[in-house]
Amino acid sequence: MSPLPRQALASAFLRRKARWKPLEYGFWILALGAAFALPSQQLLLSEIAILALFAMSLDLIVGYAGILSLGHAAFFGVGAYAAGLLSLHLTAEPLTGLILSGAIAGLLGLATSYLVLRGSDLTKLMTTFGVSMLISEAANQAAWLTGGADGLSGILIDPIAGLFEFDLFGQTGYLYCLTVLFAALVIARRIVHAPFGLSLKAIKRNSRRAAMLGISPNRRIVVIYTLSAVYAGFAGALLTQTTSFVSPDVLAFHRSADVLLVLVLGGVGYLYGGVIGAVIFTVLRAWLSVVTPQYWMFWIGLVLVALVLVGRDRINPARLTAWVRTKTGRAAPSAAPLAKEEA
C-alpha cells in the first residue's frame, strides 16, 4: 500500500529538516583545509576546535534543555584534570585518556544533574555556579593530587592509537581536535533530530504544554545534562592533551562566562552556534590581545553588553543565513516547494 500524499509530504518534510545542508559541508571542508592551508596557525585552530566543542556542549543544556548554567567550566576542568592525571599515572595514550576523562566528567554531570531539575532560573544559576566553585576550591586544596596553584605539568602524550605522533606545529593536534569535534557534532545532531531532541525543545519552549502531552521532563534533562558534561569533559581533555599542561585556570569562573559568551555570539539552540562563536571569539581575542593585551576583559564585557542591547536575535548567524536565503530567493523548506516536488 502506498502512503497517502499527505503522509508522504510529512515524512519528506521531516527528512529534509534533518538533512545535511550545503553550508555544513562547506564548513567542514574549510575546517579540514585549514589544517594544510594555515601551517603556522595550527595551535590557534586547535584552540578554536576545543572551545567550539565546549560551547556546543553548553548549547545542549542552554539551547536544548533550557537550563541557564554559570558553572559549565566544572566539567571542562574535571575533564582537563582527569586527562592530565590519567596520562601521568595510567596511560599516555590520548584516545583512552579522552574517553575516560569524558566518562569522569559525565559521572559528575549525572550526579549534579539532579540539582538543576527544580527551582527557578536563578536557583539553577546558583547551583551550577556553586558546584563549579566547589570543584575549583577542591582542586585548589587537593594539591597532592592536582598540584594546587601550580597545576599539573610534565604531561607526556603518546602517539594517538600508537600511530599519529603529536608534532611541534600542532597539526596532528588540530586534526585530532577537529575529528573529536566532528564526531561529537554528528552524534549531537542525530540526537537533536530524534524524537528525544524534539521533546527537549518542547520542554524548553513550553513546559506546561509538554507536561500535558505526557512528557516527563526530569529523566530527559538528566540524560542531556550528562551528555553535555561528557562533551565538556572531552573539550577539557583535548586542552590537556594538546598543551601537555593543566592549570587551575581550567576551572575558573571566567571560563564559564566566556563559554556562555561564545555560545551567545554564535547563537543558541542549533549546535553550530558554539562552533561559529568559537571562531569569532578566538580570532577576536587573538586580535585584541595584540592591540590591548591587558584589558582584553574590558572588550569582552563591551561585546556582551552590546550584544544584549542590540538584541541577540538580530545578529544570530542562524537568523542571518535565513535572512540571506530569503533575500537570494532560496526560501527555507516549506510546504509549497515540497508539494511540487512530490507531485
Binding site: A257, L260, M297, G301, V303, V305, L307
Partner: peptide
C-alpha cells in the same frame, strides 16, 4: 550576559 559584561568592563 549583560550584567557579566558590565562586571568585566
Amino acid at each position: 550576559l549583560f550584567s557579566i559584561g558590565l562586571v568585566f568592563m
